[in-house]
Design a protein around this nucleic acid. Sequence first.
DNA 1: ACGGCTAGTCGTACCGTGTACCAACAACGT
DNA 2: ACGTTGTTGGTACACGGTACGACTAGCCGT
Lengths: 249, 249
Amino acid sequence: MASVENSGLIWTRPEPGTRRPKFTRDQIAATALAIADSEGFAAVSMRRIAGELGAGTMTLYYYVRTKDELVALMDDAIMAEVLIPADEFPSHWYDALTAVATRTWDVLIRHPWALHSLRNAPAGPNAARHFEQSLAAIADTGLDAPDKFALLAWVDDYVHGNAMRSAEIRSAGEPAMDEQTIEEAIRFGETLMATGEFPQTLALFDGADPRDAFPRLIGELTERERFLHGLSVLLDGVAHRLHLDLPPR
Amino acid sequence: MASVENSGLIWTRPEPGTRRPKFTRDQIAATALAIADSEGFAAVSMRRIAGELGAGTMTLYYYVRTKDELVALMDDAIMAEVLIPADEFPSHWYDALTAVATRTWDVLIRHPWALHSLRNAPAGPNAARHFEQSLAAIADTGLDAPDKFALLAWVDDYVHGNAMRSAEIRSAGEPAMDEQTIEEAIRFGETLMATGEFPQTLALFDGADPRDAFPRLIGELTERERFLHGLSVLLDGVAHRLHLDLPPR
DNA sequence: ACGGCTAGTCGTACCGTGTACCAACAACGT
DNA sequence: ACGTTGTTGGTACACGGTACGACTAGCCGT
């Protein structure tokens, strides 16, 4: 017995298949993803997925050892969306890195629950492919390994940070907050401002209704444009610091 | 009845006090924070906090309406740590913003669970104070309101993103992963590399043992130094884009 | 065709969570 | 001393992940 110990990693453990199982891991992951996208990650429970699939809850545990493994599958599916088709890959490092970052951002915004819920998911094959693409993007910079690594880290930090905070800001409007509570929150804000402790904040709002202040502060720009703007500022700093050339025009 | 409807916000609802209650909200929040710091946010349950405090579980619900409110208190306590004492506040925008960002980063690293667990917490008084300090930091730039707002957003994005990813990377080593599983993960990585699909990644590792690769890629720098490095790159880009002057020397 | 092995399915049960409900207690004004 | 009401906490419920083991059904060897 125990000749072929079950692997500890889901990636190396073959999925069921010899005797026509009812499902595949991909199917299960896709179902979980659909639930998360439409009702949030909290709605993704083993019972719920099984119900959606018309299966008994415990059946899922034949495909997956724990819920964490299911989450790892979800993460891998998400990372697949991040990959850029080879023929869309720009040649100049600046454009290529922008493309990779933007595509990552798009995916994170499309699945706003992902950043928090997949945090502990171990990197899968598609995560590796994404990293490879990131390296390919900056291959023509001539940087050494540590500089490349640092550059990718800076960009990833900004992309993830921006996506996370964008999702937060967007969801801050929607949830429980009824009209009543919003009114009250504004009143609380006014109480704070009245203490005189917040001259800068007061000046920033400039007497406008707090509900109008936010649109005024972000200008006409969309969330995505603001992301791209910040990214270009960061890349400018990078190019200057690492003595890289900017793309023509 | 119902003349003074209980406020929907914990900030405006007075805490118990007329008849010497056993606890205070601060006490409860502090206990919750201690548990989260030593055993992670998942260990923070109402039963657990109550147990720690020698109280019945439901007693907590006299101080707090839901667990979310408790989390809001935790968030406010954390934001208090972020505030910079007035006499430590640098005068030049570059130094002041760096100080605010670094202090924020320090706190987020000290409480690695905070970024994810306090995500939905509504802003409290100390969050407002932090925002005020951020604005004060860049008051001398002469930027208009939208530019100030954008600048703070870029920096916050980077700070939060870096803190989040630093915490992830650090925790990726510790958890369940026994020696056996680590060995297996490395073998899986080698399998992937062997497909020929990852030339850039392979070149980056340069044949070194993956366990040694990471230290080699980040150089001698500490986590904190890497954060500061990236921050300075970003601020350089910002200064260039917004035509701000850098601090002397 | 027929056992028998075993891949695959799933009901039951256990513990842990947040919290609604309500009974009990204790500090204060009278 | 009494009633009011601020404060405490026990019990119960729905929901979560998953251990255990009984069941069903597809395939192989005969």
